[in-house]
């Protein structure tokens, strides 16, 4: 079951700041969603392989060949902050 502690942990990992009332709201909502999904466990899945893909394909690869040149400016120009050729981000605490 989903409780306040779980919601707090998930919020912390997702870098979300929740108010007390949001926390209560999401605890109820996430609990409802999981209970809904849980109906699936009523099915007998003995002998059924877990699915990791929606299509029956495997080993889809590309050759190790360089793409045509790109202008990095197209990407850099969309950065919220940059400094010359670098992306600029807020100071981070020591890893």
């Amino acid at each position: 079951m989903i409780d306040h502690t779980t919601v707090q942990k998930v919020a912390r990992l997702a870098r979300l700041q929740l108010t007390a009332s949001e926390e209560t709201l999401f605890t109820v909502q996430l609990g409802d969603i999981l209970a809904y999904i849980d109906q699936l466990s009523e099915l007998d899945t003995t002998g059924v392989q877990p699915t990791t893909r929606a299509v029956e394909l495997s080993n889809v690869t590309r050759p190790d060949v360089r793409r045509p040149p790109l202008d990095p400016e197209q990407l850099l120009s969309q950065a919220p902050q940059r400094e010359e050729a670098f992306y600029r981000v807020p100071r981070i605490s020591e890893p």
Partner: peptide, 15 residues
């Protein structure tokens, strides 16, 4: 950036 040691940096650049 902003200092040579991490603790003193004011922002970070990414490559």
């Amino acid at each position: 950036a902003g200092a040579d040691r991490l603790s003193g940096s004011t922002y970070t650049l990414v490559d």
